[in-house]
């Protein structure tokens, strides 16, 4: 069957991968971004077997690696399951090829975020971060608790120091992050 590769690991998604969709340089790009040895993945499945999200959801780490090796870039980045990794590091600690699997997921997520595949809730908490310096900012209920506990009403963080908040905002702006997350309003 010319032009069509049947990929064994794809059986759970029942898909046929077309040769023209493959970007075989993708794994190489990821190696250059610091994910060493990613090309040595032998699809043993230790990652998937060690993954709690694999147990509770449809997320399959081995499948992500397989797609990386095949260079199915768009399919990886647009897959909402990419966001089911809790970064527990079981896969990374156990990988017999010593591939930094979690670091790989992080790099892929960075690419997904930059290309508009972030979840709305994640964009929303990013706005909290850019606006307050906290991904989880203070609220009335907890200011009251703090007073009752004898703590300062607001913690001694960016919440209490406007100049410090300006520094965090300046860094967000330096990397263009504010535009990415505030621009989507």
């Amino acid at each position: 069957m010319a032009g069509v590769i049947r990929c064994g690991c794809m059986s759970i998604t029942q898909s046929v991968v077309k040769a023209e969709d493959l970007d075989l340089s993708f794994a190489k790009t990821l190696e250059q971004l610091g994910i060493e040895r990613v090309l040595t993945c032998m699809q043993c499945g230790t990652c998937t077997a060690s993954c709690p999200s694999g147990r509770y959801a449809a997320y399959r780490t081995r499948l992500v690696l397989r797609k990386v090796l095949l260079g199915l870039r768009e399919e990886i980045l647009s897959d909402p399951d990419l966001w089911l990794c809790t970064t527990c590091y079981n896969c990374q600690e156990r990988c017999p090829r010593r591939i930094d699997v979690v670091d790989l997921i992080i790099v892929l997520r960075n690419m997904a975020f930059a290309t508009g595949h972030a979840r709305e809730r994640h964009v929303q908490i990013s706005r909290f971060f850019v606006e307050t310096g906290h991904l989880v900012p203070i609220n009335e209920e907890n200011m009251k608790k703090r007073r009752e506990l004898g703590l300062s009403e607001k913690p001694p963080t960016t919440h209490s120091f406007p100049k410090a908040l300006e520094e965090v905002k300046a860094l967000a702006s330096y990397f263009g992050f504010d535009k990415i997350v505030l621009g989507e309003r």
């Binding site: 001694p156 100049k163 860094l171």
Partner: peptide
């Protein structure tokens, strides 16, 4: 007290969104 500290920023979320910003804010 670490006056003016911010979110660390969180390794699971902000590092997943923008690794360079994560590094810089962590370093700050």
């Amino acid at each position: 007290d670490m006056e003016g500290a911010s979110c660390c920023p969180a390794p699971g979320v902000l590092r997943s969104f923008h690794r360079e910003l994560w590094l810089a804010v962590g370093a700050r």
